[in-house]
């Protein structure tokens, strides 16, 4: 299989190398806002949007940095781009859906410190993707993030009704669900080209 093709990059980052379950990026929102389905979906969409915007910006920014031979500023400039696109999403959401804005609360500004977003920008640079590949990669990473968040939220909504031993309540239980999901996603890695 051609590993540079756009479809391969997209599906690879959704399934086999899922950002949350295989690469451990973006775990804070994964464990934090995955309690309910109706906050998990908008959170995932907002993160995906930020990923796409910052991925596009990061691509052109990197061209600029390479042109001027100042690659050591990469990290600082990426994080500034991400912080500004988060600000953009925050303002848009406040205007369009105040209820949702309140429901997401602190987790919205925290997209800035979501490692998945910076991860997309850094990986696309280190793997030297071209523009279309970068966008496919960011879209795939975002879709994978939504997928993981929705699966987790669905499971946790069911588990809220289940009786579990008191020692495993809370974070430990979420982590064990994460482990099972992660094992399930390992199955996809077997399908991909090595």
């Amino acid at each position: 299989m051609n590993t540079d093709s756009v479809t391969f990059i997209f599906f690879n980052s959704v399934l086999a190398n899922n950002f949350v379950l295989a690469m451990f990026l973006g775990l804070c929102p994964f464990l934090g806002v995955s309690g309910k389905l109706n906050t998990a979906v908008p959170m995932g969409l907002a993160t995906t949007f930020v990923m796409l915007v910052s991925s596009i910006c990061a691509y052109f920014l990197n061209e600029l940095l390479v042109a001027f031979n100042i690659e050591y500023l990469r990290l600082i400039s990426y994080i500034v781009v991400i912080a500004s696109s988060v600000q953009l999403v925050e303002m848009a959401m406040k205007k369009l859906s105040p209820a949702l804005f309140r429901a997401l609360g602190i987790f919205l500004p925290l997209i800035t410190t979501n490692c998945a977003v910076l991860g997309v920008a850094l990986f696309q640079t280190s793997r030297e993707y071209d523009f279309v590949q970068s966008v496919a990669f960011a879209g795939g990473a975002g879709t994978g993030f939504i997928l993981a968040l929705v699966l987790m939220a669905g499971l946790r909504e069911r588990l809220a009704l289940a009786k579990v031993p008191s020692v495993t309540q809370g974070a430990a239980l979420s982590l064990m669900i994460g482990a099972l999901l992660s094992m399930a996603f390992m199955g996809f890695a077997g399908l991909g080209a090595e």
């Binding site: 495993t168 064990m176 994460g178 482990a179 992660s182 094992m183 390992m186």
Partner: peptide, 22 residues
Amino acid sequence: VLPAGGFLVLAGWLILFEWLKL
């Protein structure tokens, strides 16, 4: 050493601490 193990080991430590606390 695979991703799933990371989740499991951290869950294990959390359960241990919770058990000690209880």
